[in-house]
Design a protein around this nucleic acid. Structure first.
Length: 574
RNA sequence: CGGGGCGUAGCGCAGUCUGGUAGCGCACUAGUCUGGGGGACUAGUGGUCGCAGGUUCAAAUCCUGUCGUCCCGACCA
């Protein structure tokens, strides 16, 4: 492409409403423009990148035997009512009516549509297993769209759905998809981890998220230093501390603690480390009107997903109000502790780590008072140990190998064994070998195509702009003839190299704008072209051309007469 | 949903408190010079100051409403 025919839309200044680096650079490089909150137009340059992602995704899905389809973005309410999600889904689902007053939604996902398609198309076990996929625009009316295309309302997604008779077949396809996703993100040149994820309310046996590691990510990922264990912190098991609990050495006694309501304040006042001050969270119980206490070490955080899974705890998880706490326990929320709660009919659940602490401090269940020297089994009953906290860096890995490291991740893919949630609700059945009707089992597999673009930038940029991995770059190499108006031989050679590279199938960009060198350099670096060749009159006089990779610090002088060989080698064509 | 910030030229901003003929930088147009890291000079183009209503001789500025947009969000006892 010649830049005279392919205008760039780069900006020197950063638009003020862009928060994260990928959003800033996408706007500055002119890849996207905002239309409204969470809605973006992709420019010609941006679309080239998006298409590169799509192409790799399609190639790998096809290689895995999946079949591409295209389903409508607009979906009738009837199917959603059939699956029960018309009621379950909240305001994230964009609903509207057509001129006949029929209800529709703009699809945030396509389980209902594909299940309907499957039940019409699939009649026999002989047609299974099958995996269909599409690349489609989705709309989710996010509470807070942000970070540009990272969390947009309208976004491009590859979604795939597989249909099976039985768990074994589903498991086999799931493993193929796991491998396929690994290939896709490897080809895209991203630093990623496949992590075990929460299966949520759907249940099912397996779910993995694929995360691109980046500090701006919205999820915490825990992975082992010594094995391939990796899990979303939401899910990562916090194992019990090794060894026996230390013996009690102190008597239990109360101390006055006026105006002391937080763990930090209690620790400061008592001189104890935070891990010897226990916090007691009073939650609503599953049984109406009952309260439940959750006890954690002061330096640990409650994991709400784990807590919600306790049968005695209300779901969704809900903190008791300060009024409820005072009414039942007789103290403010800053002075609550586990001692004596059982007598009040409050069940106490203690995190494994908290149950391992001896001589701890906690609230006294009287205002302005805390207890010191408290010990499980002596001052209050031994409680059942549960896992209700978030793992922290340095915790032992649940698989017993190594310790956990925690990093931020951007979720770019998610694979899921759905089971028969949709196929049962929508009666998607086939006949088996015995001629009996069987509900199919399903898997679903998503990749956030537009999000991948943003994630790639989060991971690959410097102070000058984007540094695309080769597979994503809108153009692989830029040819920059200098002083073309005074030294036309630079443009002539550039045109010749342009034609030769294009003939080799290289995505080559020729900057024929006849601008000053600094402008060309800055633009090419901002938009992240991985290779650049400068053709100057001075260099030509010496029989040399100047090459530089986007991630290199220095120029490299290459002989002009063998330049194509050198470029082929650097572009990885040989 | 609640709290806060911001809406003035395509982008980044000043001007608003204290009402009095709308400004700066970048970008854009023309020309001259310049020509290896977003160059200089000269001359230009471009704004119903988000929108509606009100106060006033006079409103970007004060008042009311409204829309848009960005940030934050329970609790961590």
């Amino acid at each position: 492409m010649r830049l005279s025919q392919f205008p760039l839309a780069t900006l020197k200044e950063t638009p003020s409403d862009a928060e994260v680096i990928s959003h800033q650079l996408m706007l500055r490089a002119g890849l996207i423009r905002r239309l409204a909150a969470g809605l973006y137009t992709w420019s010609p340059l941006g679309l080239r990148v998006l298409r590169k992602v799509e192409r790799i995704v399609r190639e790998e899905m096809d290689r895995a035997g999946a079949l591409e389809v295209l389903m409508p973005a607009v979906q009738p309410a009837e199917l959603w009512q059939e699956s029960g999600r018309w009621e379950q889904y909240g305001p994230e689902l964009l609903r509207f009516k057509d001129r006949h007053d029929r209800e529709f939604c703009y699809g945030p996902t396509h389980e209902e549509i594909i299940t309907d398609f499957a039940r019409r198309e699939l009649k026999s076990y002989k047609q299974l297993p099958v995996c269909w996929y599409q690349v489609q625009t989705k709309f989710r009316d996010e509470i807070r769209p942000r970070f540009g295309v990272m969390r947009a309302r309208e976004f491009l997604m590859k979604d795939a759905y597989s249909f099976h008779l039985g768990q074994d077949s589903l498991q086999a396809t799931y493993e193929v998809m796991h491998a396929t996703y690994t290939r896709i993100f490897t080809r895209l040149g991203l630093d990623f981890r496949a992590v075990r994820a929460d299966t949520g309310s759907i249940g099912g046996t397996g779910s993995h998220e694929f995360h691109v590691l980046a500090s701006s990510g919205e999820d915490d990922i825990a992975f082992s230093t010594a094995s391939d264990y990796a899990a979303n912190v939401e899910l990562a098991e916090a194992v019990a501390p090794a060894g026996e609990r230390l013996a009690a050495t102190e008597p239990m006694r109360a101390i006055p603690t006026p105006d002391t309501h937080t763990i930090e304040q209690v620790a400061a006042l008592t001189g104890l480390p935070m891990n010897r001050v226990l916090k007691t969270l009073i939650m609503r119980g599953a049984e109406e009107g009952r309260l439940v206490a959750l006890v954690l070490r002061g330096d640990h955080q409650l994991n709400e997903i784990k807590a919600e899974k306790l049968a005695e705890v209300a779901s969704p998880l809900c903190f008791a109000s300060p009024e409820e706490v005072r009414e039942t326990i007789g103290a403010g929320v800053g002075s609550i502790g586990p001692v004596g709660l059982d007598a009040l009919g409050i069940s106490v659940f203690v995190d494994r780590a908290a149950l391992h602490v001896a001589d701890f401090a906690c609230g006294a269940n009287r205002d302005d008072e805390h207890l010191l020297g408290v010990n499980w089994g002596r001052d209050l009953p031994e409680a059942a140990a549960v896992d209700i906290r978030n793992v922290v860096e340095g915790d032992p890995s649940p698989d017993g190998q190594g310790t956990l490291v925690i990093r931020r991740g951007i979720e770019v893919g998610h694979i899921f064994q759905l089971g028969d949630k949709y196929s049962r609700a929508m009666n998607a059945v086939v006949l088996d070998e015995q001629g009996k009707s069987q509900v199919m089992t399903m898997g679903c597999y998503g990749i956030g195509v537009s999000r991948v673009v943003a994630a790639a930038i989060e991971q690959n940029h410097d102070e000058r702009g984007i540094r695309w991995p080769m597979a994503l770059a809108p153009f692989q190499i830029a040819l920059l003839p200098l002083n073309a108006s005074r030294a036309p031989q630079t443009m002539e050679l550039a045109q010749k190299l342009y034609a030769e590279l294009a003939a080799l199938g290289v995505d080559v960009l020729l900057d024929d704008r006849e601008l000053r060198p600094g402008v060309m350099f800055a633009d090419m670096e901002l938009i992240g072209i991985p290779h650049r060749l400068v053709i100057s009159d001075k260099g030509l006089a010496a029989g040399e051309l100047e090459y530089r990779a986007r991630d290199a610090a220095e120029n490299e002088m290459l002989p002009a007469d063998t330049i194509m060989d050198a470029l082929r080698q650097r572009l990885g064509l040989d």
